[in-house]
Each structure stands twice: as C-alpha cells, then as structure tokens.
C-alpha cells in the first residue's frame, strides 16, 4: 500500500512521539505557534528534497561512507535554501532565518534518509518525507499551542490573535526549557497510557 508510506509518519510512527527524533529543535522552537509553523515549513522543504535526492543516488553511495555523504547533501541543501531565501524572500527569511541552520542537526532528516530513503524507491521516499513532515508539524504545533497559551495567556499567529488574552498572570516557566519538557512529557504519557490500555483489552 503506497498510502501507508504517507500516513505512517503522521500517526503510527509519528517522528516526535513515537520515534522521539528531532527533540532538540523541537524544544527550542515550540515556544510560539508561528515559530513552530515556520520550522515545520523548513523541515518539509529539506526533508522532501534530501529524501528524494538520496533515494535517487542510493545505488552509488558506498555503505561505509553513507553518513558523511548524507550529511554533506543535507547541509548543502539547507545552505542553498538559506541563501536563496535571504536574497529572494527576505520577509520569510527574517522569520525563519534562525531555524534554518537548526534543520541540519534535526535527526528526523538524517534518520529518515538513513532508515528509509537509502533503501527505498524515489516515490516511496517522497511519500515518507511528506508523511513525516506532517507528523512533525502536528507534534511541534501541538506543543507550541500548549506552551504559548500557558506562557502568554493568548495565541497570536503572524499578528492575528486566535485566542484572546484570558489571564493576566501567565506562567513564564512554560516558555523556558522546563515548559517544553513538561509539555512533551505529559503528551507522551497520555499517548502511552492510551496504547497500554488498548493492548490490555
């Protein structure tokens, strides 16, 4: 089933909650919803492109040096995206500029390239990348929603207020690193609790 390659990344093998990959940028960028969306967009670009490119060349890359090859390809790709965005979309670059270099060290990219794209045909890798990006987006935006609401008392995306201020004394801790750990911990606990109960039946 081709469609499985797409949907598995969203729910069954969600990169954040199931594979537990890419937590470093996740912790750093999930402070606000618009930042989370920006990071997701960057991950989408780079993940899809590097999965497709690596999958195209998978027969030519010797397995002993595959990791250096992958890293070089991913890092070059991120830099190219960064250069062009800086020159031709300065508005977007202003928002995403800080997160683009973080994508190089995002384990989801290397993880998917190594575990999937280096073994599977191009189209499957393409679907896998899209699914994983959607899974990553759901995870990071979900966490950002919790953290932004609790830390600022409202949600504002690109200047539009989605949830108006409902408290005058929000918790600053939620925007600091402990807030990220707490949120991820609670969400993972809920997911694991559900799957344990399901198995028990």
């Amino acid at each position: 089933m081709k469609l499985d390659e797409l949907t598995k990344g969203v729910f069954k093998y969600n990169p954040i909650f199931y594979l537990v990959l890419g937590l470093c940028p996740l912790l750093a960028v999930s402070t606000r919803v618009d930042n989370a969306l920006g990071m997701s967009l960057g991950v989408f670009f780079v993940l899809v492109s590097s999965n497709v490119i690596i999958s195209l060349f998978r027969h030519w890359i010797p397995s002993q040096v595959r990791i250096p090859c992958f890293i070089v390809v991913i890092a070059s790709f991120v830099t190219i995206v960064e250069l062009f965005m800086h020159g031709y979309a300065p508005e977007l670059y202003g928002r995403l500029g800080i997160y683009l270099p973080l994508i190089v060290v995002n384990c989801i990219i290397l993880g998917r390239v190594e575990a999937f794209a280096s073994k599977k045909p191009v189209f499957d890798s393409f679907l896998d990348a899209i699914g994983m990006s959607i899974g990553f987006t759901l995870g990071i935006v979900g966490i950002a929603v919790c953290r932004e609401v609790l830390s600022t008392g409202k949600i504002a995306i690109f200047g539009y207020t989605l949830v108006p201020t409902f408290t005058q004394s929000p918790s600053v801790m939620m925007i600091l690193p402990p807030g990220a750990f707490l949120t991820i911990g609670v969400i993972m606990a809920l997911i694991n609790y559900r799957s344990i109960r399901k198995e028990g039946r």
Binding site: V72, V73, A75, S76, T79, I80, L83, F84, H86, G87, Y88
Partner: peptide, 16 residues
C-alpha cells in the same frame, strides 16, 4: 555539493 554551494552563493550574493 561544493559546486552547488558556490553557484548558489554567486547567484544570491548581490541580492543578499
């Protein structure tokens, strides 16, 4: 990769 980076840098330098 180096060639691709050089080309992109040259193409975008003035714009940046």
């Amino acid at each position: 990769s180096g060639a691709a980076l050089t080309a992109s840098y040259d193409l975008t330098e003035e714009r940046i």
